[in-house]
Design a protein around this nucleic acid. Structure first.
Length: 231
DNA sequence: AGTAAGATCCAC
DNA sequence: TGGATCTTACTT
């Protein structure tokens, strides 16, 4: 189908506010080559994050909400690089930096469909079971799994450039955008920050409606605590 | 210097 | 439902 054709992303296409760019990443592909293994991930679920001074209102759920720090420095840099951070001491999660240079902005890649390299992704994930439909579906379902399947790790690959595809510590990454944006876009509250006061006003999670690789939303975590602790 | 919590995942 | 596992940032 012509409407599903892809092209290499340019920095200009990522220069807008993350909340505006995020839905354009749905259906796009992140293609990584790490240690000789290529994995192509079709993005099905993303979340936008701003920072102090980005956009009309401060984003209370962002790593950059308090300003620039050593950890979130990549978020303040040039669009098109990848902000890779460590979550809970275990998981490397991947963001596409967007917005103007000097302003913090990132789009968390929460889930994807592996369209090439499922075998390599399974090895990285430690999955030894036969690659049935369900096993393959779950390989990059959730931000921690996505980062591991892609082969990108904190801190080695933080800041890698997905526009030029330049090599960094044995890895390359390329972002391919759709010529025509996907039409079936759903949006809702972000996952994992729902307990932070004020984040309900930022429904900045976007996903492809009905796609089986979208991660399941867990109402029992932060969202439930919010109703008890937030007034 | 100490500590609490975190943009998560998996097993019990 | 809770533990893993370690970094970050805020408190003493």
């Amino acid at each position: 189908m012509v409407s599903e054709e892809l092209h290499r992303a340019t920095r200009a296409e990522l220069a807008g506010l993350p909340v505006e760019v995020a839905p354009r990443l749905l259906g796009a592909e992140l293609r990584t080559l790490v240690a000789g293994s290529a994995v192509h991930l079709r993005l099905t679920e993303v979340e936008a994050y701003h920072g102090q001074g980005t956009g009309p209102e401060p984003d209370p759920g962002s790593h950059a909400r308090m300003g620039r720090t050593a950890r979130n420095a990549t978020m303040w840099g040039e669009a098109g690089h990848l902000y890779v951070y460590l979550s809970h001491g275990i998981h490397s999660c991947v963001n596409v930096v967007s917005g103007a240079e000097g302003q913090a902005g990132g789009i968390l890649l929460r889930a994807g469909e592996i369209v090439q390299g499922a075998d390599a992704a399974a090895v990285r994930r430690g999955v030894t079971a036969p690659l049935t439909g369900r096993v393959v579906r779950d390989l990059a379902r959730g931000p921690g799994r996505f980062g591991q399947a892609a082969g990108l790790r904190h801190p080695l690959h933080d800041g890698i450039d997905a526009i030029t595809g330049a090599e960094l510590d044995g890895a390359t990454a390329e972002l391919w955008l759709r010529d025509v944006p996907v039409s079936e876009v759903a949006r809702g509250p972000r996952v994992g920050v729902a307990g932070i006061a004020g984040t309900d006003a930022f429904p900045w999670r976007f996903w492809i409606a009905g796609d089986p690789t979208v991660s399941p939303f867990r109402w029992g975590r932060g969202a439930q605590e919010a109703s008890g602790s937030a007034r």
